[in-house]
């Protein structure tokens, strides 16, 4: 594993860490306020983490496949055999497809998470307004009681 590979994995792992923090945020919101928006935030954060895991897995498998295919032939100094090459192409196509599906899942889940977050923020804004109204109402009731 060279420096470029380490840098690539570090970037993907940092994104994985970010998605874990997304889950922590969603769990905190869901524990405090159980509603549809917080539940969907939790579900989509978990699904997007699964998406990044799939993406990371396919990147790792592709690199590993290329390494094993070419390193086995490089010891003898020849190109890989046609059988090995066709196997490599078949598997790499499979992993590229898996990578595409993972990235689509990731983008879709992030999109839905963002919509859930917007709904949650709207609710928080409404709750704040309601709290102000309740404060005014309580002040009025207190005044009536004292009079």
């Amino acid at each position: 594993m060279n420096t470029t590979d380490i840098q690539t994995y570090a970037i993907y792992l940092s994104f994985f860490g970010i998605f874990l923090l997304f889950i922590i945020g969603a769990v905190t919101a869901f524990k405090n306020y159980r509603s549809g928006s917080t539940l969907s935030m939790l579900i989509f954060s978990i699904l997007s983490t699964i998406g990044i895991c799939g993406f990371l897995f396919s990147v790792y498998q592709l690199q590993n496949l290329a390494f094993t295919t070419y390193s086995s032939s490089s010891t003898s100094g020849a190109m890989p055999s046609p059988t090995a090459m066709s196997e490599y192409q078949k598997l790499s196509k499979l992993y590229v497809e898996f990578m595409q599906y993972s990235s689509i899942t990731l983008i879709a889940c992030l999109f839905l998470f963002a919509i859930s977050l917007a709904v949650f923020c709207c609710r928080i804004g409404n709750l704040r307004k309601r709290n102000q109204q309740l404060e005014d109402l309580n002040e009025m009731l207190q005044l009536r009681l004292t009079n």
């Binding site: 970010i18 923090l21 997304f22 945020g25 905190t28 919101a29 977050l117 704040r128 709290n131």
Partner: peptide, 15 residues
């Protein structure tokens, strides 16, 4: 994401 987690924690006060 740090801000988001902070927002989730501070919104607890509103409930």
């Amino acid at each position: 994401i740090i801000g988001l987690v902070g927002f989730m924690c501070t919104s607890k006060k509103i409930y």
